[in-house]
Structure formats: C-alpha cells, structure tokens
C-alpha cells in the first residue's frame, strides 16, 4: 500500500465514523464535534493528494486553509446558538432581561 492510499483510507475512516455520529448523536455538541471531524477527514483527502508532487500542490493547501477558517466560523455560530437554546431551556419564562420569549 502506498502512503497516499494509506492516508486516503485514514480519511475514509474519519469520514465514516464522523458522518454516522453526526446522524446518530443526541447531544448537539457531539454533532458539532462530529462535523468538525468529518471536515478534518475531507481536508486529509486534499492534503494527501497535494503531497503527490514535490513540492506539494499549493492550491490544495490554500483550499485546506480556507476550509479550516470556514470550520471555525460555523463551529462558533453553532456553539453560540447551542448556548442560547440551552439558556432558554434552562429558564423558561424567566428571561425578563430582553423579553425574547423563545421556548425550548
């Protein structure tokens, strides 16, 4: 097995594990972790393919950098929404500060 094939299989394992957990996990925080791991799996495909040439393909590396930044952006939004939802679930009807009455 070549190094490229090995890392493609590792990426496939990450994607398989993460996609299944993304669909089955009950805790939204675990789902966010799962989508991050799935993202790492797809980035691993790109970096492994970039390593076929010497020096490695800079366009693929730039794409992966973009992917990492997009990942942190949606993870941050997801965590903030999760926090707001849990705050609303914790104290139903008690939120007198702003009067936004989102239920759990």
């Amino acid at each position: 097995m070549s190094t490229l094939e090995w890392y493609l299989w590792v990426a496939a394992a990450l994607l398989g594990l993460a996609c299944v957990r993304l669909l089955l996990a009950r805790d939204p925080l675990v789902r966010l972790i799962a989508i991050n791991v799935a993202g790492s799996g797809s980035l691993l495909v790109l970096v492994a393919l970039a390593a076929r040439t010497d020096p490695p393909d800079p366009v693929l590396h730039a794409l992966v950098l973009t992917g990492i930044v997009i990942t942190v952006a949606f993870t941050g939004v997801g965590l903030v929404l999760l926090r707001r939802a849990e705050e609303a679930a914790e104290a139903p009807g008690e939120d007198g500060a702003a009067g936004n009455g989102e239920g759990p």
């Binding site: 493609l8 299989w9 990426a11 496939a12 394992a13 994607l15 398989g16 594990l17 996609c19 299944v20 957990r21 495909v45």
Partner: peptide
C-alpha cells in the same frame, strides 16, 4: 460507519 468508511476508502 464501517460500511461507509470502506465504501469511501475504496472510492478514494
């Protein structure tokens, strides 16, 4: 997960 990983790995 095993099936999905095996399928993706074969395809990659």
């Amino acid at each position: 997960a095993v099936l999905l990983g095996a399928g993706l790995g074969t395809a990659f």
